[in-house]
Amino acid sequence: MNDHKGAKVETIVLGGGCFWCTEAVFKQVRGVLAVTPGYAGGHVSNPDYQAVCSGATGHIEVVKVEFDPQVIDCATVLGIFFATHDPTTLNRQGADVGTQYASAVFYQNDDQKTVAQRVINAVQEQLGRPVVTQLHGPATFWTAEPEHHDYYARNPYQGYCMAVIEPKLAKFRQHYREWLS
């Protein structure tokens, strides 16, 4: 953990389909200090959006979530993550299809791995269907190009944002109202 303006900082990297969606959700979570869209899990250095979208690099669209564990714990971060995407569909979220849209957790330490496995088991039991979320250890995180940062905030009336991101945000606001920042 690092020091971030006096707060303890814990980091976890999450892939929940399109990183625009996942970023938009976590930007609204109390205790989240920073959310950065990017790529993880692939075999190519310095990937770009076009290469990742081709599926040839092996990367997953992810967000690096930095949070204050004294405000929000890892289990709650993961609860929000699982509640705002479908962890039962392999390499797809709605119309977004491809390995880059895989559901994935890149844990940063053994404690996060344990918590992630516990949350996955609970979600699977609750849904009554297999959860296909990939569980990975730390991986190189490549920051996405600037045009992908704050995408929803800059384009709230764009068709994808209205049709895909806004419903996820509404679900988050309804089920996790106490975590709104």
Rank of each mutant, 00 (worst) to 15 (best):
N121T: 14
D111W: 03
V35C: 13
T114R: 15
D110F: 12
A163T: 07
G79V: 04
K168R: 11
G38N: 05
P87I: 04
T133F: 08
P167L: 04
V35F: 09
H43L: 05
Y160L: 10
L33Q: 14
D96S: 04
V105R: 12
A75D: 11
G42Y: 08
V52L: 01
A139C: 08
A153I: 03
L135T: 07
T57N: 07
G41F: 12
Y152T: 01
P138C: 09
R154T: 07
G98Q: 13
G159W: 08
P146K: 06
Q93S: 03
N155F: 01
A51I: 02
Q93E: 13
V71T: 15
N46E: 15
V63K: 05
C53V: 05
R92G: 05
V123M: 05
Y152M: 05
S54L: 11
H149A: 09
H85E: 08
V77G: 00
T143G: 02
N155D: 02
D73H: 02
N109C: 11
A95I: 01
V77N: 00
Q100T: 13
A116G: 08
T57A: 12
V97F: 08
H59L: 01
I120P: 11
V131G: 02
S103Y: 10
Q50S: 06
T143D: 06
Y101Q: 07
P87T: 06
C74A: 15
L169V: 00
E147Y: 10
T88P: 00
F81M: 00
N155R: 09
G98C: 08
A170V: 10
T89M: 12
L169A: 03
H59K: 07
P138S: 12
P37E: 05
F82N: 06
N155G: 04
Q117F: 02
A116V: 12
D68P: 10
K171Q: 10
I165L: 15
D111I: 07
H85Q: 11
G137F: 09
Q70H: 06
G128V: 03
Q158C: 03
Y157L: 09
P146M: 09
G38C: 13
T76I: 13
E147L: 03
Y39N: 14
K64E: 15
G94I: 05
V65S: 00
T88Y: 10
I165S: 08
G55T: 01
